[in-house]
Amino acid sequence: MLNDITRRLAIYSIFVGMSLTLMVMPSAAQLYQTSAKHATLMDFDSGATLFSKDEDEQMPPASLAKLMTIEVVFHALKNNELSLDDEFLISENAWRKGGANSGGSTMFAKLDSSVSLDDLLHGIIVQSGNDACIAVAEGMAGNEATFAQLMNRRAEEIGLKHSRFANSTGLPAEDQYVTARDLAHLARHLIEEYPDLYHYFAIPEFTWNNITQRNRNPILGATEGADGLKTGHTQAAGYGVVASAARNNQRLIAVLGGMKSKKERREEARKIIDWGFRAFVSKRIYDADEEIAFASVHGGNKSEVVLVSERPVNLFMARANQGRLKARVYYNGPLEAPIDEGQEVATLKVWADDKLILETSLITGESIGMGSMTQRAIDGVEELLLGWL
């Protein structure tokens, strides 16, 4: 949105005129402690980080990499490039590297069998099946190496800045790593972009080849509102989890990595989710389409355009140790007419005690047509004069 914030004229910074009585002190979140080596707790609505611990430090993903495999599949389903009824072959490679004899998590799919994508998604999400992942990768891209290129392309497109994938399973590989922050962002993306497919993550168990396996997510059925997402474990990565829960129209996403046992993972995941809901409360600062600010317009039949948010703007705020909020709207302007309603043109940022706690896009709330020749001439002179200042 802001390509060069140092330019004098092209960037305008507007202080939003509002008398906020809402109070927040995110630094109180740092009073929380977890034994996880890496951690982040995110508010789903705002994307704000409520707690972090080495969230930008690279770590092996283990089976948490399967969330990226799932994203590639969900993206293809959403774009009608795949159907849940499509069938994929369980090749010898998938069977040997990910099947019952591999020693890793498996769906127990039979060699040379054909399995529907719907069943493979059950196998990946519920059972963490490596065989299911490899079958999908080979079916979509020919082999895992090419599928990994798809994973990295999608990771870049959705904004995962510090993660790289080398295979569909998360099994140990060179040049494969993630961060807790990126995994939280990925989880938020999956929940937001694929609401019709997110239900897979809450399925408690799945039976394939007469073998029933329970979902490995330790908070499902044990933590109020828990409905996703994924666990992972290798010797190098330790025990990790990406978890989400929703209560009273509020949703949290937790990422924990580097723990020493399943028990520790289960306890730490439950504790941080429960703490988040207990320590913070959701406050709405703007409704969807509510006037937030105005942006200057050049050459239009109006000199300003109203800025709004497509969705309600909520803050997940600490209940105690509160401090005053500050908000700004940034845009690259003045905006040139004509302007269509719904154009993404600005960014709303909210701080508490100099810490950025919210950043969200704003759109134009109305259309602005071209101004008269006289108005455009006046705007041109005004811009020229401003350039001399």
Rank of each mutant, 00 (worst) to 15 (best):
A202M: 02
I339V: 08
L307N: 07
Y330V: 10
L77K: 08
D112L: 04
L348N: 00
P218D: 02
R96H: 09
G103Q: 03
A337I: 02
R284T: 13
T69G: 03
K263D: 13
I70V: 15
E193Y: 02
L84S: 04
A226P: 12
G139F: 07
D289T: 06
G380L: 09
N130D: 08
D353P: 06
M23Y: 10
K283I: 04
N321V: 05
R376I: 06
F316N: 12
G365R: 00
S309N: 11
F108S: 00
G103E: 01
E268W: 00
D56P: 08
A245P: 07
G300F: 01
V281L: 09
R7H: 15
T34H: 10
I11N: 12
V16Q: 12
N152F: 07
G333R: 00
C133F: 06
L386V: 08
G142W: 05
G276T: 05
S52D: 12
E55L: 09
G369I: 04
K355N: 02
K302T: 13
D354N: 15
A166H: 03
L385D: 07
V345E: 00
A173K: 07
S52T: 14
T360C: 12
S113R: 04
Q30G: 04
I363N: 02
G142M: 02
A166F: 08
N79C: 09
S296I: 01
Y200E: 01
E55R: 05
P312H: 00
P61K: 03
A184D: 03
H199I: 04
V305N: 08
R8H: 09
S91N: 06
R181T: 05
Y200D: 07
I203F: 09
L358M: 07
A148K: 03
Y198Q: 10
T374L: 15
N209T: 04
S303Y: 00
D289K: 10
V242R: 11
S52M: 12
R96D: 09
V281E: 12
F206Q: 13
D379I: 10
W351E: 02
S102M: 01
N152W: 06
M25W: 11
L20P: 05
G225N: 07
H122W: 03
K66N: 02
Q322V: 12
V73T: 10
N210M: 11
E224S: 12
W351F: 10
V16G: 02
K326Q: 10
S52W: 03
V241Q: 03
L220W: 05
